[in-house]
Design a protein around this nucleic acid. Structure first.
Length: 919
RNA sequence: GCCUCGGUGGCGGAAUUGGUAGACGCGUUGGACUCAAAAUCCAAUGUUCGCAAGAACGUGAGAGUUCAAGUCUCUCCCGAGGCACCA
């Protein structure tokens, strides 16, 4: 009997497939297309580890499956090869980054070929290839022409270790995503792309994508849309009359509670000399301090808020003309909203903290809706607990001289009556009715006065409150809500961030706060607007190994784009790739490249020396596979129409808010200028789970726990490797590698090999085995479509086990088995297929159909439950009627034992499943 | 703090969407073959009690709905990922 030697089998077929060019994608086909794509890798020096191919194997399986189902499949691969590691390597070894990059690509490709992934290598691309990045530059120029690119001098995120500016997406907790170095703010001129112009579309179009909900949610959060209002406050100082500051707020309903205003330290108005800020030096000192801080220092958890008041300047609240102080504080961010806020300490935790520190008034304007009325009850000498419980009042806290109580809404009148009768003289009681506060004053002589708290009664209540406490009446009355909020029992109602009922807000009192939002905004002369967390895309990098930005600076004409017929603008050779760290790229040192002529006026001009971020090429690479050699256009329109969009995109979840946002943006732009026919690039997205090391940690050179696929393939074979990675568990789960675990899939392959070599094939297939076979055909097809490979493989294992037991199968049926296994284990199945006398390639064969008649069983096992517990299992024919089933179930001795002489109350029959008897 | 997933044997994981919990694989134990070992094959393998037949318990914890809950509802605990001074 011939032994299964994986090496021999796999080498043989790998060679034959390449010779026969079976993976080539044919154009102009009448077949339905299917574009399946992997996120292309960065070819690192370390080569592949076993985690990389997991996604590639999955797409390979789908690709083969779709081909066998008569689809025209596009399944390409390429290289995302610009980036820092190649440059770092070049610096260290004094070779051009291109050399290292090319070597790495070669290694990666060799490794991938060993797995026999059916990529059409004729469509291979690399982002570093000038013929490719020509079109990255071209798209950038189109964006520039459409006004989507602007130069910014705002301070940007700067990584002092990578010596380059970074986009918001490149940060992780305030540090560089690559090297973990804390980010500094640095002022250097930057090219920025207005991705925020697309924020709404990026958000809304998520709804039409067939992506995992969890990834869409990440994008929604990243875009971070919030509805709110822009409202202007007049600014007053000695000299200044007409200046205004606009704030952004999501809570315009709380405008009456705005007791101060805060500007970001970088806010431009501060530098307006007319403000006549009296403590100018203090303000400047604070600005300086703030600019020095790293992102991490600024946002460190638990950090106390700081700020400086602008002395001699006040803002005027547009709805009640109240003058409020203005502060600068770094808890307000310059680049979100308008860089200025109205601070409402009563309904915002940060403002509350700041107000407490700087002793600013806290004025509640929204009363939280509560389930119960509540009160702090004093003067209780004559009030017994019994008195209270009789009318349903619940004591939540008891102190010597007071109760904190909840009052049912329908007992409020009884409660009032009790207070009037039994509260001691010279006390008052206030309680919250669910909508407002109500006061009952009992004077020394027993006279009773009652008030609802509102702006008319506020002063009177405040005055009574004072005299009852034997204090002097104040000259200026206080806000009663303010002193009520000092009591913790009321604080949670008055100082909450929830929606509720308006109070303390003149004509809006009593209104629902949601409803008040728009009305108060209107009264304030503001307008409803939307703000986003998403920032514009900082697009300049001060490094060498990236696409040169195709712009020219001319003294006369300003910034001019490089003429399109001069593209690609190639990276020049340079002596030193070393980043300068000054904010200039290494390209700035090459005079003969930098100095050029202006394409508009012909005068002398200088080239832009920054390069593009690594995300540029990957934002559109998937389009180039459709038409990789086209030198007239980014992609041919007809070809694009046929192949786009990508039907299935597979890659790591870590790209959810980076690559996948940039690519969607880039694609929408290309759609807007008519280059592509669809406004979303990837209709279905599936994320791959990580493969962890055997020790449960991430695979990393640092831990020395990396598993190289070459070693695995050498020992177990590529087919086993492929099967194992798919069998490990759910595709998107991250699971630890187990070398022991490889034995299972290997044994499974050997079982099938042996079944053939032992002569089990060629005779009859039993009825039973036929049933399993057809059920398996159905299941494997369905599971592939849903990427449930682990269960597909286990179903085939069941089939193989049964074949081994029965030792008989027809040639035709065994062929079907080989076909459904072939996407998973292409080499061994192909060898057996050929040994059976076939001279075709399995990948070019047709996927077998299952026969409905084998899917249902004639006899089934019916579970019999008594009171919900399984007591017996009876074998019956599949089409048994309810009455027959009941009769049979009751005949069972075991069942009778549990029924005994008890009365049968109910019998439930679930066809094909169970019968449940309730006694 | 907020958002999104998860929690099932010694381990990776199944479970037709409310209907036999633990498929399939690994590991472990026993047996066959062998001078022996490896490989292979057969059998057992959730826990507890029991010689056995069998019984009870069992899907993070607690309650609830139901004839029936891993699956639905509520409360809580733990873990992973993401966001985080975003007004």
């Amino acid at each position: 009997m011939e032994r299964y030697e994986h090496k021999k089998v796999e080498d043989k077929w790998r060679k034959k497939w390449i010779e026969a060019n079976v993976y080539k994608t044919t154009e102009d086909s009448d077949k339905e297309k299917f574009y399946i794509l992997d996120m292309f890798p960065y070819p690192s020096g370390a080569g592949l580890h076993v985690g990389h191919p997991k996604g590639y194997i999955a797409t390979d399986i789908i690709s083969r499956y779709k081909k066998m189902n008569n689809f025209n499949v596009l399944h390409p691969m390429g290289w995302d090869a610009f980036g820092l590691p190649a440059e770092q390597h070049a610096l260290k070894n004094k070779v051009h980054p291109r050399i290292g990059t090319d070597e790495n690509i070669k290694t990666f490709k060799k490794q991938l070929e060993k797995i026999s992934l059916n990529y059409d290598w004729e469509r291979e691309i690399s982002t570093t290839d000038p013929e490719f990045y020509k079109w990255t530059q071209w798209a950038f120029i189109q964006m520039y022409k459409k006004g989507l690119v602007y130069q910014s001098n705002e301070p940007i995120n700067w990584c002092p270790s990578c010596k380059t500016g970074l986009a918001n997406e490149d940060l992780e907790n305030g540090a560089c995503e690559r090297c973990d170095t804390p980010i500094e703010k640095k002022k250097i001129p930057q090219w920025v792309i207005k991705i925020t112009d697309y924020a709404d579309r990026l958000l809304e179009d998520l709804d039409k994508l067939n992506w995992q909900e969890h990834i869409k949610e990440l994008q929604r959060n990243w875009i971070g849309r919030s509805e709110g209002a822009n409202i202007s406050f007049k600014v007053k100082s000695e000299k200044l009359k007409d200046e205004e500051i606009e704030v952004f707020t999501t809570r315009p309903d709380t405008l009456y509670g705005a007791t101060y205003m805060v500007l970001a330290p970088e806010h431009e108005l501060i530098n307006n000399e007319k403000l006549k800020i009296k403590n100018w030096s203090e303000v400047v000192a604070y600005q300086k301090e703030a600019s020095k801080k790293t992102e991490i220092e600024r946002t460190a958890e638990g950090r106390e808020k700081t700020g400086v008041r602008l002395e001699g300047v006040m803002a005027v609240n547009p709805v009640n003309d109240e003058e409020i102080p203005i502060f600068i504080a770094d808890y307000v961010l310059a680049d979100y909203g308008t860089g200025a806020i109205m601070a409402v300490p009563a309904h915002d935790e940060r403002d509350f903290e700041f107000a407490q520190k700087y002793n600013i008034e806290i004025k509640p304007v929204v009363l939280k809706k509560d389930e119960k009325a509540r009160s702090v009850l004093m003067g209780i000498k004559n009030i017994s607990e019994d008195d209270l419980s009789k009318i349903g009042v619940e004591i939540v806290e008891k102190k010597d001289d007071r109760y904190h109580v909840f009052i049912p809404f329908n007992k409020i009148e009884e409660y009032k009556e009790l207070i009037r009768k039994k509260m001691e003289n010279h006390f008052w009681n206030e309680f919250y009715t669910g909508k407002k506060f109500y006061f009952i004053f009992k004077h020394k002589d027993g006279k009773i006065e009652e008030f609802e708290l509102n702006s008319d009664t506020n002063d009177q209540i405040d005055a009574y409150g004072m005299t009852f406490n034997d204090e002097q009446v104040k000259e200026k009355p206080e806000n009663v809500y303010g002193w009520l909020a000092k009591n913790d029992f009321y604080k949670e109602l008055l100082l909450s961030t929830d929606r509720g009922v308006m109070i303390n807000s003149q004509e809006f009192d009593g209104m629902d706060s949601e409803e008040a939002k728009e009305k108060i905004t209107k009264k304030a002369g503001g307008k409803m607007t939307t703000s986003y967390k998403l920032r514009d895309w900082v697009f300049s990098r001060q490094r060498y190994w990236g696409e040169p930005i195709p712009l020219i600076h001319c003294d006369k004409c300003g910034v001019v784009t490089v003429p399109e017929d001069e593209l690609p603008l190639e990276l020049p050779e340079v002596e030193s790739y070393e980043p300068t760290g000054t904010g200039e790229s290494p390209l700035a040192a090459i005079d003969e490249w930098v100095n050029t002529t202006c394409p508009e006026c012909g005068g002398s001009a200088k080239r832009e020396t920054n390069t593009m971020p690594q995300w540029a090429g990957s934002s559109w690479y998937y389009l180039r596979y459709i038409d990789p050699k086209n030198d007239k256009a980014l992609v041919d329109k007809d070809k694009e129409k046929y192949w786009s969009p990508v039907d299935f995109y597979v890659g790591g979840a870590e790209h959810a808010t980076r690559h996948l946002i940039y690519a969607r943006f880039w694609h929408k732009f290309l759609y807007d200028i008519g280059v592509v026919n669809y406004d979303e690039p990837f209709s279905k997205l599936q994320t791959v789970g990580l493969i962890m090391a055997e020790d449960g940690r991430k695979m990393s050179k640092r831990w020395g726990n990396v598993i190289n696929p070459d070693d695995v393939i050498e020992r177990f074979g590529s087919d086993t490797f492929r099967l194992y990675e798919m069998f490990m568990g759910p595709f998107d789960a991250s699971i630890a590698w187990s070398t022991e675990g490889l034995v299972g899939p290997r044994k499974f392959l050997e079982k099938i090999w042996k079944s053939y070599q032992s002569g089990y094939v060629g005779t009859e297939t039993s009825e039973n085995l036929k049933k399993t076979l057809h059920k398996t055909i159905k299941k494997v097809g369905e599971d592939i479509e849903e990427m449930k490979y682990n269960t597909a493989i286990s179903a085939m294992m069941v089939l193989a086990n049964q074949l081994e037991n029965e030792k008989n199968m027809s040639k035709e049926d065994f062929g079907k088995l080989l076909k459904i296994l072939s996407p998973f284990a292409p080499h061994m199945t192909q060898e057996l297929w050929s040994q059976m006398g076939n001279d075709t390639f399995l990948v070019e064969e047709t996927w077998p159909e299952y026969d409905e008649k084998y899917l249902s069983d004639d006899e089934i096992t019916l579970v019999v439950q008594v009171n919900g517990k399984v007591r017996d299992k009876i074998t019956v024919s599949a089409d048994i009627t309810e009455d027959e089933a009941k009769e049979k179930a009751l005949e069972s001795e075991k069942v009778q034992k549990y029924i005994g002489d008890k009365e049968i109350k109910k019998i439930i029959f679930v066809p094909g499943k169970l019968i449940s008897i309730v006694v």
